[in-house]
Amino acid sequence: MPNPTSFFRQAGKGHPRAALAVLVAVALLLGIWGAWRSFAPQPVNAAEQLREQAARIDQLEQQVVTLTRSDQISRQANADLQGTLAERDEEIAGLRADIAFYERFVGATAQRHGLNVHALKLEPQRDPQLWHFVATLTQNLNRGAVNKGRLQLVLEVSEDGRMRKLDWATLRQQQAAPSVDYSFKYFQQVEGDIVLPPGVKPVRVLVRLVPVSGVTVEQSFTWSEAAAPAASTPAEG
């Protein structure tokens, strides 16, 4: 291997500037190499840094999971709150409707009415021929008196272009079918089921009330009116 000292001496004799340039370049390389050795992370320090960075990543990922879960819980709690508020609003509306109903029949300024069918509602069941009815009966003429009796329905239908009536026994599909009993002071909801024969088109429903004492009361409702959705009414009183 040639001696660096003799190399620089020979380079200096022939080309002083070239020798100086080489010397400066070597000095710079040695300086850079020394700085890298002094400040570069040692293998042990690098492994520790990797562990710290991995631990930091795990910590951040856990924070993301926690925040995501917290956001989901907050959203669910808000949805539950909105549902509860909607239920309370519906309950308040129902109570106000009940109060108005009570005032209409038992209030001090309520008009006096004898035995009456306040409303009739029909709801279809899974069987397309089966219908459930709810009749709201009222009276406030005899305050405190108990009204007792029986209820039956008669249905006017169109069949093959002709009108005919279906009596209670036909609607109940039972000979001598028992009537639905009622007993109340001011109002009561009476309910039951009827069955429509195939091929008939219902037109009108007749509600017949036969009190224990007094005259029979009959009121009619169109089928479209009775089968339309409506708000509920207090059960009895």
Rank of each mutant, 00 (worst) to 15 (best):
L171R: 04
L95H: 05
N147T: 04
V195F: 08
K148M: 12
Q10L: 10
A25C: 11
A135M: 06
L151V: 03
V64L: 08
Q59W: 01
G83R: 15
V22K: 07
Q72K: 11
Y186Q: 08
F105G: 01
T216N: 11
L81P: 00
G237A: 13
Q188W: 08
A21V: 13
T66L: 15
S158K: 11
F184D: 01
R204V: 01
M163F: 13
P229R: 02
T138M: 12
G237D: 10
A226H: 10
S70E: 15
Q63L: 13
Q72W: 09
A119W: 02
G214A: 10
A77H: 15
V157F: 13
R143P: 00
D181P: 00
A35F: 15
L137P: 09
L206R: 08
V203P: 00
D58R: 12
H118K: 12
V190I: 09
T84W: 08
A145L: 14
A176E: 11
V212Y: 03
T233Y: 13
T5Q: 13
R9N: 08
G31Y: 14
V154L: 14
N147G: 01
D193F: 11
R96P: 01
S74P: 00
G192D: 05
R112H: 02
L81G: 02
G192W: 10
R143N: 01
Q53I: 02
D58N: 07
L28H: 09
F8D: 04
H113I: 14
V205D: 02
S213T: 13
I73T: 08
R88V: 14
N116H: 07
V24R: 14
T84E: 10
S183E: 12
L196E: 00
A135S: 09
D89N: 14
Q173E: 10
R96E: 14
F221K: 12
D98K: 09
L130F: 03
G144V: 02
R9H: 05
A226R: 09
V203G: 00
A228L: 11
R162K: 09
R37I: 06
V134I: 06
A21K: 15
V210A: 15
A100V: 01
L122E: 04
R104G: 09
K201G: 03
A227W: 04
A135N: 06
Q76C: 00
R75N: 08
G94E: 11
G31D: 15
A177K: 00
G94N: 12
V22H: 07
A27Y: 09
